[in-house]
Amino acid sequence: MAYDKFNTLRSTAVPLPIENVDTDQIIPARFLKATERKGFGDNLFRDWRYHPDNTPKEHFVLNNPIYGGKILVGGKNFGSGSSREHAAWAIYDYGFRCVVSSFFADIFRNNCLNIGVLPVQVSPEFLQRIFEEIEKDPKAELTVDLPEQKIRIEATGEEEDFEINAYKKENLLNGYDDIDYLLSMKEEIQAFEHGLPL
């Protein structure tokens, strides 16, 4: 099932300078009851975004109209905890296509890559610079260049390289997914299964 292709993204960004943002915050468990992948964006950061009576919490960044864009910038160890892919779905469904942090939890990173959201890991210093620039100017733009594997702060021209393995990069550039790859090697898998001890 192909997803959106990702090439180069230039956008303003939403800052969330909090560390250890876990997937229970990104989408609380009580919103995982759907049997289809629809509507998760409404509950993105639900309990940080809304009071128990569903009125918006004014101070939360997603409720501040000054901030917006397709890039979410989070603190260190973003996406820890539960394996729920719903967290990546909620981020995508809300409109983000890229998450930037100085450190990602493993399963969350995989989940993002599997649905076409690009996780960009930068140095703690560069992350700090992004937060500073957005604080200075909420309309500050970032450019994420996947072919060149670079992220740039437009206002200052500061940039940094980021890592992604060649296979995943190719997938994102073309909108391919792992399932199609695996389905194409079914016979090889079946032969392998035959030789297993258990």
Partner: peptide
């Protein structure tokens, strides 16, 4: 694993 991977395991 995530749900995309659940599908991978089911089908392959």
């Amino acid at each position: 694993i995530g749900t995309s991977e659940v599908e991978m395991v089911l089908s392959t």
